[in-house]
């Protein structure tokens, strides 16, 4: 194994940028490389590891977070693009120890297996229900088309979303 002797003093590093972003209601500020992806900022800088990385090419949706309330894929957004904006991750769903209806729905309807796509899937669901509180099965299936799940076959995810929708509308637990 050949090792680098020492970091050359004149090493060109960066460019860097200062990023201020509110995550799950709490302000954060950090100096990061301009190329830092939002998902790495969330996972490696803020240590919020509930947001996952699955494909790197903006196909699978494991990295889905809410950016100013909209579901987006954080592996295809730079941390600097989130400057001054609001990010919500899976860690921000439960409030005061009380599960969000979407979290409850995924448990009640067995909407997850390995759990890897689950945070992204739930964030997409939160955004969907904010916009469409009573989605049809077809609307749900299209809304989660950017989130791939390899375990569940989606049937129970659809039910989980429906459960959450009903709960959020004040329908109680079916």
């Amino acid at each position: 194994m050949d090792e680098a002797e020492a970091m050359p003093a004149e090493a060109e590093v960066g460019p860097f940028a200062r990023v201020r972003v509110t995550v799950n209601g709490a302000p954060h500020e950090a100096e990061v490389e301009t190329r830092t992806l939002l998902v790495h900022f969330i996972r490696d800088v803020l240590h919020l590891t509930g947001t996952h990385i699955g494909c790197d090419t903006t196909n699978c949706g494991a990295c889905t977070v809410l950016l100013d309330g909209k579901a987006v894929k954080s592996c295809t957004i730079l941390a600097v693009q989130a400057e001054g904006r609001q990010v919500r991750t899976v860690e921000g769903l439960a409030e005061d120890g009380k599960l969000h209806p979407v979290q409850e729905g995924f448990v009640e309807e067995h909407g997850l297996q390995c759990g890897f796509c689950t945070p992204g899937m739930m964030m997409t669901t939160v955004a969907l229900l904010a916009k469409n509180p009573n989605p049809s099965e077809d609307e749900i299936r299209h809304a989660i088309a950017g989130n791939l799940c390899r375990c569940t076959g989606y049937v129970n995810i659809v039910k989980a979303v429906q459960y959450a929708a009903q709960k959020s509308r004040g329908g109680g637990s079916k």
Partner: peptide, 9 residues
């Protein structure tokens, strides 16, 4: 599920 839905896997 308790940990997975909280992002605590």
């Amino acid at each position: 599920d308790a940990r997975f839905i909280r992002g605590k896997g």
